[in-house]
Write a protein that binds this DNA or RNA. Structure first.
Lengths: 214, 214
DNA sequence: GAATTTTTCACCTTTTTATGCGATTGGCTT
DNA sequence: AAGCCAATCGCATAAAAAGGTGAAAAATTC
């Protein structure tokens, strides 16, 4: 069998910590390398214990799990952080995600699923309860209300040239990049302007960016 | 027992469709109200069959599942759409999500899990494979590099001019907008270029947008 | 109140863009 | 075979933008 997955647990509630410890130790594929009630020695423990997966409670005295997460990622980027919490509020979820957490489980998740989730993050997945996933998706849907990009019917070549414009290139550079003469670049850009209904590089670039035609 | 969950299936592959049909019909809590190889009659089927959950293949002849999803949500917002696909590429995932899909499963997901996922969406969750969840999370983490908006030390006036540049204005327009001479505009823009380390309007605009100094 | 920065303006030169009016080739359609 | 369009190139002109140099009033900082 391959090497055991090294687990480090941060959980302030003693009963929960001991319960989890028992669960983790009972699982042959996992190796619990530490279990602590707070993250005060995080800076020593992460490099020392080299965990593959950190199980992180959110509410802990001192530094919260959310605050500790980016520290873990900074100390050891390959370590995956799995948040474990009783709370399901939006703010915490997004903070944790932005801080680099790779998964987000509710504590009422069954032991079997927790074990499965640990394997999951270790394999590059992001386990989360489906209710949390829904919140994340919902947030996404809010984000980009306008995903429809009008069709300006640019030819393939014109599209390439437009992409170069969006890189901020001059006509000369674009010509070199595509091995065509500067007059050809002019020609293409003329057509692009017609189709996009603009008449300057800047306008074309802005339109391309705003309407995501690049 | 409560009412059965009404399922509508769109899947062009006949074997898969029949397999799914069998699976769904064998599940007492679900009621398959239709199974079609394409979405050509979507506009009739959704209001007629009133599905609670639509299982939507992504690749179908005619209208793809991604295109059909917003139509479903428009026709019947309370219907949950669950994408079923063999593909795991970023674009499709995000398109589907933005178009209103509530879950995203890979076809290799086991029957048990598919059934579980259906119950899940119906209860307001968003089941997705953990690998897809990872992509979604990763996208989130990318999103906000807001923290580091370098300080280019632009003066208030220069900032205003830069904003006008980002609107795509010409020197002349900017001069008019701010009631100053075109030479003054030039002067400001020169200073902006120096500070931003660029030497064209387009580059300045791109830098302003990318680094959010506007 | 002296020094510095910001904002304003001017003039001049060179480079880059925008636009008009061509043309040729090759591929695809009818 | 005729016609269309995409992609290539050329030349010419005008407009816009970039870059150099300088300078003076106004505001801010020290």
């Amino acid at each position: 069998m391959e090497n055991k997955i090294r687990i480090l647990l941060y959980e302030d509630n003693r009963d929960l910590r001991e319960g989890m410890t028992f669960l983790l130790q009972a699982t042959p594929s996992l190796q619990l390398v530490g279990a602590f009630p707070d993250t005060s020695n995080l800076e020593m423990q992460i490099p020392g214990l080299k965990p593959d997966v950190v199980l992180m409670d959110i509410d802990m005295p001192g530094r919260t799990g959310i605050e500790a997460t980016p520290v873990v990622k900074a100390l050891r980027p390959e370590t995956q952080v799995l948040m474990l919490t009783v709370f399901e509020d939006e703010d915490r979820i997004f903070q944790a995600i932005r801080n680099g957490a790779s998964g987000y489980l509710l504590k009422r998740t069954s032991p079997t699923e927790i074990i499965a989730a640990i394997h999951d993050v270790h394999l590059g997945g992001s386990p989360m309860t489906s209710s949390i996933a829904r919140r994340v998706l919902f947030f996404f849907q809010q984000e980009q209300p306008v995903a429809k990009s009008k069709d300006y019917d640019l030819s393939p070549r014109e599209m390439e040239i437009l992409k170069s414009l969006v890189k901020g290139y001059s006509y000369k550079l674009i010509a070199d990049e595509h091995f065509i003469s500067i007059d050809t670049v002019r020609s293409h850009i003329r057509h692009i302007y017609e189709k996009l209904q603009v008449n300057s590089k800047t306008e074309a670039v802005l339109k391309a960016l705003k309407e995501k035609i690049v």
